[in-house]
C-alpha cells in the first residue's frame, strides 16, 4: 500500500498519457482529456506542501531560538495578514491589492535588483581572462553587453548590435541547441525510468 500502489499509479498514468497521445480514437482521447482534468484538480492541493514546510521551518526556528529567530514572527505576521484579508475579502479587494502593490511588489523587485550591484562587483573582482576559454566568455559577454545598449552602437558605428546579433544567432545558438538536445534526452530517459519504477526518489524515505 505504501510503496507499491504509488508505483502502480505512476505507471498507469504515465503509460496512459503516452498511448493516448498517439491514438486519435474517441475513447483514447476521452481518457487523455479526463487525465488532464484530474491533474488540474489534484495540482492545486500541492500548495499545502509549500505552506506546511514554511510554517514548520519558522516554528522550529522560534522553538529552538536560532539566530534572528524573532524575525520568524515577521514571516508569520505577513503571511497571516495576507491570508486573512485575501481569503475573507477576495484577491480583487483594494486592500489586498494595496498590500501587494506597496509591500510585496517593491520588496520582490528590489530584492532581485540587488543582483545588479553584486554582478558589477563580481565582474570587477572575478571576471578574468586567465585561460583561452575564460577569455572567450569574457569577450563575448562584453560584446553582448555593448550590443544590448544604444551607446554601444554610438561608439562602434552600429557594429556592436550587429556583432551581438550574430553571436546570438550562430555560436550561441549551436551551444544552446547542444544543451537542449542533451537535457531533453536526459528528461526523456528519466521519465521512462520514473514510469517503469526504476527511479523512485519521489516516494521519499521510509517504508
Amino acid at each position: 500500500m505504501k510503496r507499491q500502489v504509488p508505483l502502480v499509479l505512476c505507471f498507469v498514468f504515465g503509460i496512459a498519457m503516452i498511448f493516448t497521445q498517439f491514438s486519435p480514437h474517441s475513447f483514447s482521447q476521452g481518457i487523455y482529456e479526463e487525465v488532464i482534468r484530474w491533474a488540474l484538480i489534484i495540482g492545486p492541493f500541492a500548495l499545502v506542501l509549500a505552506t506546511v514546510t514554511l510554517i514548520q521551518t519558522h516554528t522550529a526556528r522560534i522553538r529552538r531560538r536560532t539566530e534572528h529567530w524573532q524575525y520568524s514572527f515577521v514571516v508569520f505576521a505577513g503571511l497571516i495578514v495576507m491570508v486573512l484579508i485575501g481569503i475573507f475579502l477576495k484577491p480583487q479587494n483594494p486592500m489586498f491589492e494595496w498590500l501587494y502593490n506597496n509591500v510585496q511588489l517593491p520588496m520582490d523587485a528590489t530584492m532581485f535588483s540587488l543582483l545588479a550591484f553584486f554582478i558589477a562587483s563580481a565582474a570587477y573582482r572575478a571576471f578574468r581572462a586567465r585561460t583561452f576559454e575564460a577569455s572567450l566568455l569574457l569577450i563575448t559577454a562584453l560584446i553582448v553587453m555593448m550590443g544590448n545598449v544604444p551607446v554601444g552602437d554610438l561608439l562602434s558605428n552600429d557594429t556592436a548590435s550587429k556583432a551581438r546579433q550574430w553571436i546570438l544567432d550562430n555560436p550561441n545558438l549551436s551551444a544552446r541547441r547542444g544543451i537542449i538536445l542533451g537535457v531533453s534526452l536526459g528528461v526523456i530517459s528519466q521519465s521512462i525510468r520514473i514510469i517503469l519504477g526504476i527511479e523512485r526518489s519521489y516516494l521519499g524515505g521510509g517504508d
Binding site: 558589477a120 565582474a123 570587477y124 578574468r128 581572462a129 569574457l138 544590448n148 544604444p150
Partner: peptide, 23 residues
C-alpha cells in the same frame, strides 16, 4: 531605461577592463 542602461553597461565594461589590466 535602455538609455540609462547604457551607462551602467559602460561602467561594468570599464570595471572588467581595469580588473583585467591590474590582474
Amino acid at each position: 531605461w535602455i538609455n540609462v542602461e547604457s551607462f551602467v553597461h559602460l561602467l561594468i565594461v570599464i570595471l572588467v577592463i581595469i580588473g583585467n589590466i591590474t590582474y
